[in-house]
């Protein structure tokens, strides 16, 4: 059996053949589309390592069947930086040491980008902690993650204001 879906993947239009209806978005990215930056941590939506943006919102790629995503816009960690220019969240994660082993990091960063876009947390640390709590970091880099999201959020808000002015 074979099935085709159209995706906008990291800004690029892609026609993707799905070889098996059981394939999740996560395994599509990792095993079939050579985009292993998105990580598998639990495969059942409990850890957040596979967080990507689907139509601009945070989603656990392990919980989505690829076949159901025809027409979706997907952004993964590989699609975040603009060439050499890091996304402000990526830069802030390095500066604030918001990771250790780096395995949950793509998910943390995508989740942070989604959280900032949702606009509910701002730079309030309590709300950031709550909003980032779907992403487990076993190394315990939470202190740095919170600081990084705070700073990126501030920087992006300032830039938006600057752009609007």
């Amino acid at each position: 059996m074979s099935l085709f879906i159209s995706l906008t993947l990291n800004g690029e239009a892609r026609d993707v053949s799905i070889d098996d209806p059981r394939v999740t978005l996560l395994d599509l990215l990792r095993e079939r589309l050579a985009l292993p930056g998105t990580k598998k941590g639990c495969d059942r939506g409990q850890c957040g390592a596979c967080t990507v943006l689907v139509n601009g919102r945070r989603a656990n790629a392990c919980l989505m069947l690829a076949a159901g995503l025809d027409g979706a816009q997907i952004t993964t960690i590989e699609g975040l930086a603009r060439g050499e220019d890091l996304h402000p969240v990526q830069a802030a994660f390095i500066e604030h040491d918001g990771f250790q082993c780096g395995y949950c990091t793509p998910g943390q960063i995508m989740s942070a980008v989604g959280l900032i876009a949702e606009g509910d947390a701002g730079s309030d640390p309590e709300r950031i902690r709550e909003g980032m709590s779907g992403n487990i970091c076993r190394c315990g880099a939470y202190h740095g993650i919170t600081l990084a999201v705070q700073e990126a959020s501030r920087r992006m808000a300032a830039k938006e204001e600057g752009d609007a002015a």
């Binding site: 985009l35 930056g37 993964t76 960690i77 590989e78 890091l86 390095i94 990771f99 780096g102 990091t105």
Partner: peptide, 12 residues
């Protein structure tokens, strides 16, 4: 900062 930081935040 971590020398492997760039690789880790960009997913490579």
């Amino acid at each position: 900062t971590r020398r492997d930081g760039l690789a880790k935040v960009t997913g490579v």
